[in-house]
């Protein structure tokens, strides 16, 4: 079984304890307390972090020393038999994403387009932008990254299933897998490496792919001239180096994303998981602050890069007068493939 590679020495000598100090959902009096809690976790002792963490993934990004505080927290929770979300919800996710041989594999040669287990992704990965790979879609639990179970502190599920997923891709004989979801790319890079799993193909981040294609399609782009607010997803925290890609795409298609209070490292979660873990009070508060912030900067559109965020927030942003749209659809709008009215 793969073990988490967590360098205790790195943590012990950390002077910032940014992982916890920067947390948006837990408050610590200062370095001493935060560092102290982290040490407890490392040693397998009880810590309030284990009951209070909302699983927003952010500490993976806040730690700049290459350690994996969030995976560790999740490991420890599971070791102690703890649940983040209610047990029936946790198990439902485990059951729902079980491999049952009901997968779809398109015309895959050396590239596969991973549509995870999310039907919406299949619809997104189409049109001129994806014309070379749309037919190479793969869909189903067999090809779904199991990262979601980190929210539920069930790292065992990841350790059991991720190697199978990787093997399933390998068996397709692909050189590249284009991941249509940050979670997928984050799993095949960050999680796989944290657990020492070898990935025998090149994971491609879909927004890198989209950016490249949009450059190629430059002639077709009609600048959108709109103002948007971008909803960063939790799994983007696993791949913070990819944050600039989004901005480049926005630039290319003439989209203004005014500076917000809650962006980049300070981004707020879509709150679906918060709702599931702790109830509506915290979730409603986060959603309100988040959307107030979007409205304040004059955004007309709320742009998503994750279908889960989109499902969770669409109705709520629409009620506040913003149009919800996935970043791929925004690009399709820019090249005239989608009408603004249809969003």
């Amino acid at each position: 079984m793969h073990q988490l590679k967590f360098d205790q020495k790195v943590c012990a000598s950390c002077r910032s304890a940014d992982c916890l100090l920067k947390c948006q959902y837990m408050k610590f009096s200062g370095h001493k307390e935060a560092h102290g809690e982290m040490m407890k976790i490392m040693k397998g002792k009880d810590s309030r972090v284990l009951t209070e963490c909302m699983t927003c993934y952010a500490c993976e990004e806040y730690c700049t020393r290459g350690n994996h505080p969030f995976y560790l927290i999740s490991e420890r929770r599971e070791e102690k038999g703890m649940f983040t979300a209610p047990r029936p919800i946790t198990n439902q996710w485990i059951n729902m994403t079980k491999m049952q041989g009901k997968y779809l594999v398109g015309d895959v040669k050396d590239k596969a387009l991973s549509c995870c287990y999310i039907p919406d992704l299949g619809a997104l990965g189409t049109g001129e932008i994806f014309k070379d790979v749309a037919s190479a879609g793969v869909f189903g639990a067999e090809f779904m990254c199991p990262a979601v179970h980190t929210h539920f502190a069930r790292m065992s599920v990841i350790k059991e299933r991720l190697p199978v997923v990787i093997e399933n891709y390998r068996k397709l004989g692909v050189k590249e897998v284009i991941c249509l979801h940050d979670e997928c790319y984050g799993t095949l890079t960050s999680i796989a490496s944290a657990y020492g799993m070898e990935v025998p193909f090149k994971p491609v981040y879909y927004l890198d792919y989209v950016l490249q294609r949009m450059k190629e399609l430059k002639d077709k782009i009609k600048p959108l001239n709109i103002t948007i607010a971008y909803q960063r997803s939790c799994s983007n925290r696993l791949i913070p180096d990819k944050l600039p890609v989004v901005k480049k795409i926005f630039q290319l298609i003439g989209v203004k994303a005014p500076k917000r209070t809650y962006q980049d490292k300070n981004a707020l979660c879509c709150a679906e998981i918060l709702r599931s873990i702790s109830g509506y009070k915290l979730a409603d508060d986060v959603v309100k602050r988040n959307i107030d912030d979007m409205v304040k900067v004059g955004a007309e559109y709320c742009v998503f890069n994750c279908p889960a965020c989109q499902i969770s927030l669409s109705e709520k942003v629409a009620k506040r007068g913003l149009k919800p749209v996935h970043i791929i659809d925004l690009c399709k709008m820019a090249i005239g493939e989608k009408e603004r009215g249809t969003i």
Partner: peptide, 17 residues
């Protein structure tokens, strides 16, 4: 139903879809 969420015995599903 909050008490059942607190005890992790029950929870609400996200059902938008």
């Amino acid at each position: 139903l909050q008490e059942y969420m607190d005890s992790k015995d029950g929870g609400f599903m996200a059902i938008q879809y």
